[in-house]
Design a protein around this nucleic acid. Sequence first.
DNA 1: GAACGGTGTTTGATATTATCAAACTGCGCG
DNA 2: CGCGCAGTTTGATAATATCAAACACCGTTC
Lengths: 258, 258
Amino acid sequence: MMNLIQSVERALKILNLFDDYTEELKITEISNRLKLNKSTVHSLLKTLETYDYIAQNTETGKYRLGLKLFERGNIVLHHLNVRTLARPFLVDLSRDTGHTLHLVILDGMEGLYIDKVEGTSGMIVYSRIGRRVPLHSSAVGKVLAAFQSNDWQSKLLERYSFFRQTCYTITSGAQFQKELNRVRENDYAIDSEENERGICCIAIPIKNHLGRAAAAISISMPKAQFEEQPLENVLGKLQAAGLSISRRLGYLDKKAHL
Amino acid sequence: MMNLIQSVERALKILNLFDDYTEELKITEISNRLKLNKSTVHSLLKTLETYDYIAQNTETGKYRLGLKLFERGNIVLHHLNVRTLARPFLVDLSRDTGHTLHLVILDGMEGLYIDKVEGTSGMIVYSRIGRRVPLHSSAVGKVLAAFQSNDWQSKLLERYSFFRQTCYTITSGAQFQKELNRVRENDYAIDSEENERGICCIAIPIKNHLGRAAAAISISMPKAQFEEQPLENVLGKLQAAGLSISRRLGYLDKKAHL
DNA sequence: GAACGGTGTTTGATATTATCAAACTGCGCG
DNA sequence: CGCGCAGTTTGATAATATCAAACACCGTTC
């Protein structure tokens, strides 16, 4: 098909190594993990450093991610003005309910957290801006998938692997298809311990001018609280916020043809 | 000195092209600007795209920055926990005063915006998270430079170019040195139309355990408002916030030896 | 204080690999 | 229909990334 450039690939693989490691990496560790010669890694690192994509700790000699990534990342973010539109709503919803709110967009076959407002309850939610979340086991994922075109959904179902996260996770394409249809009808999605034990979420779509989901907002809470109060309490507030944001994005309330 | 890897350099230069251009770029435009062969650029772009650092608009064929940068950028951000510490203070200060607040860190010989809270007054401040600001013409820049080591300052003054931004900009090393000494004594800095006509700023340092500036916070307002009310009104609030954040970073109130 | 194990760094011969021009495809427009 | 202008693919060529090995440095250990 296509010839990728080896050295660039390797450079990007180096950047990707820092995925879960907030810690700094030694040059030898990088070369071991990527099975590359130490001096090759060194050249790559020095190139990345020159352009500020990597920085070296002058004390220890170890390497860490550079500030350029941060700078460039925020330019990307600027494209996604959904975030600035949504933020005040997330803040309000979090204050009203005490729970944690997330804003998530679709990226390939995953959801990508682009904003988060922590609740006051202090419940720990395993998420972070920039992290990813599966489509089949999360409320936001279901919403994002539900409001895409039928063609997109078919392609997704062909390729997707429904790995199990908890004992409640949806693990078949047929089940997921039914769930998506239900989400389209209801205009919201539920995750009841399907992604993480003890945690339940409600999510609603942010729709664009085509009626597709440009993003999804979710509220996360412990199972107990989710069960003891009626769904409508919080769902109404979520949907009101979702509609306001969607309208500002150009959504026109019409029935979308997906 | 050192051999950088050409193809990686070129790939990073492509990413850097998107600096001020939120618009998408055509492959031919990229090759013109970097004076590279079209097919070379194509290979580079496809490699970057495979790793999600570049994305192609399927409609127009044009290229834009990819979401991976956003993801990686937020990992960098996570390192800088100054931001999470400072944010609530910025929000409060903005609500109290109605003005725009900025959080800036030192990166090389420039300031780098890492957070911003817009004021309610609706005044337009030309800044954005990820953007850079000169050290010699901004209040935050003066603060960041003032609270570094003497060695660092000497090196800065040797190399720095004091370009003019407005008719009030400091344009000589001697002047700047005097200004830095004043900032060290007062523990705050002023920018009165030195960076942008009509805009004045007050900035204070966030200090680390060594007494160095880990970051700076500034408040921006129109010249008229800056002149009509006494400085102390807002300066006191800023300094209180600065001290709280500095203490959480390990600052111990002692006189630093810089 | 000499030898060791651990860093990151530099070197230079080698063949792999990125590069370029040119040809190709596909789209929109007159 | 044919022109112009996109992005893409091709393949010969030479430049360039790569590797192993040697180097320099810093602590530790004997």
